[in-house]
Design a protein around this nucleic acid. Structure first.
Lengths: 198, 198
DNA sequence: CTTATTATAATACGATTGTATTATTAAAAA
DNA sequence: TTTTTAATAATACAATCGTATTATAATAAG
C-alpha cells in the first residue's frame, strides 16, 4: 500500500476545500477541477478519492454534520438544564468565524436540497436528529418539573427548533448588520417562557 | 414596434420558467438555454429580454418577492389583530402547492445568497421589509394594549420573524413528513404568548 | 409606403463542465 | 526482491456553459 497518510484524513481535507469554494463561489463553484486545485491535487488524484461529484458533495455535507455533532458531543455540560440548552444551541449558531462558515455552507446545501434528492435526504436526516435532541431536552425539563406546566413537548420542540434554524438563517444572511450576541439574547428570551416561572 | 404582448408580461413568463427549473434542477439548472427552452423561446429571443444571466436570476427573485408582497397587500384584513397576523404569516408559509413552490425557490435563492452579492442584497432587502412588518405589527399590539405588558418590541419582532422563516425552511425541506396545518398551530401557539392573558 | 425599432432566430466562440482512460510512481505485501 | 495495490498524473472526449454576432421577420411610427 501507498502513503502513510490516512485515507479518511485526505477525504476530510478535500471536503474542507469544498466548503471554502462553496462559501466563496457557491455550490456550482465546487467543480471537481476547482476542488482539486483548492485542495492541491490533480484531477486524477481527486477522482481516486471520490468516484463522482455527487459523492464529493454528499461527503462534504456529511462531514459538516459530523463536525457540528462532534462539537456538541464534546461539550462539557454543567448539568444545569438551562445553561446546557444554551450551550448546545450556541454550537449551531454563527457566533464566530468558524461557526459562521459552517452556517454558510449549511445554508448553501439547504438550498440545493430543494432539487437534489441525495442532499435532501442528508438534510432531513440532520433535521430529524436535531428535532429529536430538542424534544428530549424539553421532555427532560417536564420530567424534572422545570418546565412551565401544561406544555406540549412536541410542539415546543418544533417551535424551538424552527426558531434556532430561523435565527441561523437570519444571522448568516444578515451577518454584516446583526450583532451575534443578539442571537443568544433572543434564544434566551424564548427559553424564559419555556421554564417554570419562579 | 412588434408584438402587442406587454414586454413586462414576457419577462414575468420567463421568470416563471426560471422558478420551475430552479425547483426541478436547482439554480445551476437555470442555464440561459434551459430557461429559453422552458419558456418556449430561442436563445436569441431570451437575450433580448435579459442581457445577462445575472439579470435573469435577479429578476426572477425580485418577481418572487413582489408576488408574495402583492398577495399580502391584497389581503382582506379583518381589523382583528390576532387574525390578521395569522393571515399575513399564512401567505409566507408553504401551506399549499403554490406557496410551497415559492418557498422552495426562495430557499434555493437563500442558499445562493451566500456567495452571490446581488442575490444577497435582494435577500437582505426582503429580510428587512419583513422584519419591519413584524415590528410594526407588534408595536401596534402594544399601543392598543393587546400585547403582554413589558415586551421588547424589537426582540419579539426578531423572534417571530426567525420563527416564521425557520418554520418555512423546515416545512419546505421536510414537506413530505410534516402536516402543513401543524405549521400554523405552532405559529398560533407562539402568538398566544405574545398577547395579553385574558 | 417607407423607415425605424422591436423581436426572433440561427450560428459561432472560447471556456468549462463531469467523466473516462492510460501511464507512471511509490509504498506495502509476498 | 518480486509482486501487488494504492496514489498520482496527464490527457482526452463529448456536452454544456455564458456571451456575442449577424441576419431575418414583424410591427409601429413617419
Amino acid at each position: 500500500m501507498p502513503k502513510i497518510v490516512d485515507h479518511e484524513k485526505r477525504k476530510e481535507h478535500i471536503a474542507e476545500a469544498v466548503w471554502r469554494l462553496v462559501r466563496r463561489e457557491g455550490i456550482e463553484g465546487a467543480s471537481v477541477r476547482r476542488v482539486a486545485e483548492e485542495a492541491g491535487l490533480t484531477l486524477g488524484a481527486l477522482r481516486h478519492y471520490f468516484d463522482a461529484q455527487n459523492d464529493l458533495l454528499a461527503y462534504a455535507m456529511r462531514l459538516l454534520i459530523r463536525r457540528v455533532g462532534a462539537r456538541i458531543d464534546g461539550l462539557a455540560l454543567t448539568g444545569q438544564a438551562r445553561a446546557d440548552m444554551e450551550l448546545i444551541i450556541a454550537q449551531l449558531a454563527p457566533l464566530d468565524q468558524e461557526r459562521l462558515a459552517e452556517a454558510e455552507v449549511w445554508l448553501a446545501f439547504a438550498g440545493k436540497a430543494v432539487s437534489d434528492p441525495a442532499i435532501r435526504a442528508l438534510s432531513q436526516e440532520a433535521h430529524e436528529a436535531l428535532y429529536d435532541g430538542f424534544k428530549r431536552m424539553i421532555a427532560a425539563l417536564s420530567e424534572r418539573g422545570l418546565a412551565r406546566p401544561g406544555i406540549d413537548t412536541e410542539l415546543e420542540a418544533r417551535l424551538l427548533h424552527a426558531l434556532v434554524d430561523g435565527l441561523v438563517v437570519h444571522y448568516t444572511t444578515y451577518a454584516e448588520h446583526l450583532d451575534p450576541a443578539g442571537l443568544m439574547r433572543i434564544v434566551s428570551s424564548h427559553l424564559d417562557g419555556l421554564f417554570r416561572a419562579d
